[in-house]
């Protein structure tokens, strides 16, 4: 198990290989459909917020306020990443992302951007909302709450030993592409 800790430098990210299991510790931002569309259309980040060398998590968390009025994440599994494929590559380039966490993998454009700009795609276990929420220690901030609503807002979260698998690395390798090829081979043998 590789410990991936902030700051997420290009060097650390380039060292990761497809198939590596990692535990991530540091700050991440959630972002899903509304945020990706907005950023891609030239929308600006709020003053003081930067995604440079940061991680974006494709997730619409369930967040509640506890007795003291603090935000608390109660369920936070990944959502399907491929919906962000039209935007992700450009956002990696423009904002300097170092990693994207999600589920289901992404396409060739994102893979190419990962290679060119030094970024990886990390797959979290889909449906594991409870386990993953235990690795979220703190809600540091929330952006675009008014504009996008709670699940679509960009939540700044402090995570500790958050488990994920490198399925697309910064060297052009994709586990998704690989499994598709091997399973298609078996399928062809089975049906022909």
């Amino acid at each position: 198990m590789i410990q991936l800790e902030a700051p997420f430098t290009e060097e650390k990210i380039r060292a990761l290989k497809q198939g590596d299991e990692v535990e991530i510790t540091g700050v991440i931002f959630t972002g899903r459909d509304a945020a990706h569309k907005y950023l891609h259309e030239g929308g600006a980040l709020p003053a003081g917020m930067s995604l440079q060398n940061k991680i974006v998590y494709h997730c619409g968390p369930v967040v509640v306020k506890d007795g003291q009025g603090n935000w608390k994440v109660v369920a936070a599994g990944p959502t399907t990443s491929i919906r962000e494929e039209p935007y992700q590559g450009d956002i990696i380039k423009q904002f300097g992302l170092r990693a994207v966490i999600g589920k289901g993998g992404m396409g060739e454009r994102t893979l190419a951007a990962c290679k060119e700009f030094g970024c990886v795609y990390l797959h979290a276990v889909g449906g594991a909302a409870q386990v993953l929420s235990t690795h979220i220690q703190k809600v540091k901030n929330v952006y675009f709450m008014e504009e996008f609503g709670s699940p679509e807002a960009m939540w700044e979260l402090e995570i500790v030993k958050f488990p994920a698998l490198v399925t697309m690395d910064s060297h052009g390798n994709s586990l998704h592409r690989e499994i598709l090829a091997t399973s298609t081979n078996v399928f062809n043998q089975l049906v022909n």
Binding site: H123, V125, L165, T167, L175, I179, V186
Partner: peptide, 13 residues
């Protein structure tokens, strides 16, 4: 036969 395809949990193999 589906299990022979080796897709595995989450498609990880």
């Amino acid at each position: 036969e589906a299990n022979q395809m080796g897709i595995g949990p989450m498609g990880y193999g």
